[in-house]
Design a protein around this nucleic acid. Structure first.
Lengths: 329, 329
DNA sequence: GACGCGTGAGAGAGCGCTCTCTCACCCACG
DNA sequence: CGTGGGTGAGAGAGCGCTCTCTCACGCGTC
């Protein structure tokens, strides 16, 4: 009752193991008659090649690790980027015949597990998603010698695809100023993430260039942190008339705080987010935001990895930023 | 520059391959002196066992496939359940020393890939997430002989953990009636999913028992379908005063339509959702909903799978339903 | 002192596949 | 008719690990 082996197929077809192997792997030098009889035997026996044996012999696995930095606090957030990116990356990798091994690298423990897993030869390459900047994992993996790419910039040694955060922040701030706003605050993401840094830097730069004063509160990309930061901002500067949140989730949190405090959006305070997640369409009022093309982004990152497999040079690149104006500004 | 093998470690330590293997696998019959010298050699060489070789020899993989039904349309939804469940399941499985292979089973293609993957002996078990009821995949996998569990009920042959959908729907409907509502409509999920069926059945039952007429519109668990269905309902019965959406995402969509149509919530129309995703806290007004304990649910399903590995009997079970009252009702 | 037994180390046969090497055969050509 | 080249099939040596089997050794027992 055990699984049929290649040898069993060979016996049944009356040919050698080698011939069966050739048929299975689509080698060109196989006579049609042999191919025929082998395929029949395969069908009759329900033969499927044993993955481990094949990996062992070929030293290839056809698998890719998709490493996602998990929030360390054990907090389960319904981060929409997670869904969109993981789904799209999986889809593309699977379409390319690669198996996707999802790994969470939140804890030190998880990080160690990733390193071991890669070292154990389980995968041919690694795709990192939104790792924190200070994380040693990207460098550690890159040193290992196998292809590693990152969605979002991390370590210089790791090829990446990123969106244009500084430009996006600039667009957001100038949009608010164009709308006549004068006291424009920002709610940042966790500053150990490059995306958060770049969005803050972009904000600062735009404010400075236009001769305005920065008003900053710290968040961590979650809704609740957005709500908290908004409360803080309102206390610091009750007269502020606009907020640029470094992502949509925090903007949603900010909207809530504003509603609770009796401010009308956009009449009293304009709110702009970043990412353009689906939920941004369903806030009240619908959220103006900077579009991050998640799907394209994930696809491009996968393409980068696949190109690396083919020995292509690694050319990191940026996706263009684009403003989506709705009713919150 | 190739990876060190067990044999290299043995040579360096001056012992046999067998002894190294024993040390690596923590066999009890190893003299401390030998263990010592082997561990040193392992450290010096940076040895990590080759996964494929080990799998081949042991016929075990230590990996589990996490199969998620992906929306077929190529539509990327930021389904919060996806995040929460995948994250929590991954975390628990990793903690149990299992590797998690994420697979999307949206297309027929993807489904075939899953079957092949499992047949190729890549994994020791499978965890299915919210598959459609009519899907043949659960049965196909179960027939394969290896442990399969499902988050959400699917095929009779597959052990599962589910939440109590009928009871949840009942709670929701009676809550609306208790609030004095009389014309209570529902927006269903895709009716090929058992969760959607059960929630609809629960709604019907509660309405019938209390002597009310059912008003039904079809959705598919997405925000946009909720908005569309709400428009439909408003057209069918402009005087309705309450809506039970089969999940929160559709409730959010419904809120939007109601706002656009000039209805106030809850004054004119009460809205209740199902699942209690984080976003339900941030709608305006915050959404009353039936709580689905995603984290617990995912954990319980993983536990079920792990128990199956240990040869335990499969006892499917239901998580209790609970109402979370906020301001939309 | 001979024997039996328990403990711990080594030898080596697989696990199922790939891939190089070898060889048989056939055809074209001189 | 002999030879060379090309094509396609078979043999078998690994890939790196596990695990059974065997054996050496030391101790207690009679």
């Amino acid at each position: 009752m055990s699984r049929p082996t290649l040898e069993a197929v060979a016996a049944r077809a009356g040919v050698s193991k080698s011939s069966v192997s050739r048929v299975i792997n689509g080698a060109p030098t196989v006579a049609p008659s042999i191919r025929e009889v082998v395929l029949r035997a395969v069908r009759e026996l329900g033969y499927v090649p044993h993955a481990a044996a094949r990996n062992l012999a070929t030293r290839r696995t056809n698998a890719v690790a998709l490493v996602v930095s998990d929030p360390p606090k054990g907090l389960v957030s319904d981060d929409p980027m997670f869904s969109a990116v993981v789904r799209q990356a999986s889809r593309k990798l699977e379409a390319a015949g690669k198996q996707v091994v999802l790994m969470l690298a939140g804890s030190d423990d998880g990080r160690a597990r990733v390193v071991d897993y890669v070292a154990a030869g389980h995968v041919d390459g690694v795709m990192l998603v939104s790792m924190h900047g200070a994380d040693s994992l990207p460098a550690t993996l890159a040193r290992r010698g196998l292809p590693v790419v990152s969605l979002g910039r991390t370590n210089p040694a790791v090829p990446y695809v990123d969106n244009d955060n500084p430009r996006g922040a600039d667009l957001a701030v100038r949009h608010l100023l164009d709308r006549g706003r004068r006291r424009v605050a920002t709610i940042t993401g966790p500053l150990d993430m490059t995306a958060a840094q770049e969005r803050l830097t972009g904000y600062h730069a735009a404010m400075r260039e236009t001769g305005h004063r920065s008003i900053v509160a710290l968040g961590d990309f979650t809704r609740v942190s957005g709500a908290d930061a908004m409360r803080q901002l309102l206390q610091d500067d009750p007269a502020l008339d606009a907020v640029f949140a470094a992502n949509d989730l925090m903007a949603i949190g900010a909207l809530r705080t504003l509603r609770e405090s009796g401010r009308r959006v956009p009449d009293d305070v304009a709110v702009i987010g970043f990412d353009d997640i689906e939920a941004a369409l369903y806030t009240s009022p619908p959220l103006t935001t900077v579009h991050s093309p998640m799907t394209t982004w994930a696809s491009a990152t996968v393409d980068l990895l696949l190109a690396l497999f083919d020995g292509a040079p690694h050319t990191p690149f940026r996706l263009p930023a684009e403003l989506v104006v709705r009713e919150s500004t």
